[in-house]
């Protein structure tokens, strides 16, 4: 998954990596998103008072989001009182920045869960949308301060917190995992620090919320630092096989290792010219 980034790192690249990619094409499912740079968002300091930005956000909202979330952003309730489209009042700028900033919103089609897509808006537009939603209820979580996103926290503590709070869904190496009925916890490799932080405080879709009372901002910084550390430091043992664990290793042993040896036995037993 993180191969593209590794190539940029030149010094750590294995000559075998290219061969490995071809061999593992079936196992590795997509993932060029690592190319995205981790530049910190310029509008992160949530200037909700900036009325011009709010007005601009409202215009964008009415044009792109209101069809589902309603003109006043209160969502939509069906005849049985069931919320079919969620209200955005109180979700905060952080939720908007996460959902729109990762391309999950605007949604294309309904499915088990909203998928990551190409981002539809510019950074400025996202900031405007976020400012507008924040203005609806100023108590909502805001876009995190850059000091929590620097990746310079305690990786050891972060690793431990990650394993207790996150690994059961996202896998110990952040490679992702399955949930019920077609839902899944996404791969965290290559996800911007800001989005990881926002996911924790807003609990998008089926992810639980990790409020600051549960994991303090400093805890979150540690977790992010751990994930970024894993990204920056490729496995000591060589190519990672997508970090999916023993199943992929087993398939590799059967198909690649045993397959190669069977080809060699054929050469060995074939009559020479």
């Amino acid at each position: 998954m993180s191969l593209f980034r590794r190539n940029v790192n030149g010094a750590r690249r294995h000559p075998m990596a290219a061969v490995a990619v071809i061999a593992l094409g079936l196992i590795v499912s997509g993932g060029g998103y690592a190319a995205a740079s981790a530049a910190v968002h310029p509008a992160s300091s949530a200037t909700a008072a900036d009325t011009q930005l709010v007005a601009e956000g409202k215009k964008l909202f009415l044009g792109n989001c209101a069809s589902c979330h309603g003109k006043n952003a209160a969502g939509e309730v069906d005849a049985n009182g069931k919320q079919v489209f969620p209200t955005l009042i109180g979700v905060g700028a952080a939720a908007v920045d996460f959902q729109v900033g990762t391309g999950r919103m605007p949604a294309q089609a309904s499915g088990p869960q909203m998928m990551k897509k190409t981002v539809q808006f510019t950074d400025h537009q996202i900031a405007a949308l976020a400012a507008y939603v924040q203005s609806l209820d100023p108590t909502g979580p805001t876009v995190p301060d850059a000091k929590w996103l620097d990746g310079k926290g305690d990786t050891s503590r972060g690793g431990e917190l990650f394993r207790v709070n996150c690994a059961m869904c996202h896998n110990a190496a952040g490679a992702g995992g399955a949930l019920t009925e077609g839902k899944f916890a996404p791969n965290l490799s290559g996800v911007k620090a800001r989005h990881i932080y926002e996911a924790m405080i807003t609990g998008p879709q089926n992810m639980p919320v990790f409020s600051d009372k549960n994991l303090s901002p400093s805890d979150k910084r540690d977790i992010i630092s751990y994930l970024k550390y894993l990204e920056k430091n490729p496995s000591s043992g060589g190519y990672e096989l997508a970090n999916l664990g023993p199943v992929v290793e087993g398939l590799f042993a059967w198909i690649i290792a045993l397959g190669l040896l069977v080809l060699i036995t054929m050469w060995l037993a074939a009559k020479s010219n």
Binding site: H14, M16, A20, G159, E160, R163, V164, A167, M168, C169, H170, N171, A172, A173, A175, G176, G177, A178, A185, L230, S235, S236, G237, G238, Y239, E240, L241, N243, L244, G245, P246, V247, E249, F252
Partner: peptide, 23 residues
């Protein structure tokens, strides 16, 4: 060339956490 069982990712055994894809 290929990592197998990167134990350092899993941490020491603790009965409370678990990793997705425990197989």
């Amino acid at each position: 060339t290929f990592t197998i069982n990167p134990v350092w990712n899993y941490g020491g055994y603790d009965p409370s956490p678990v990793s997705a894809g425990t197989q």
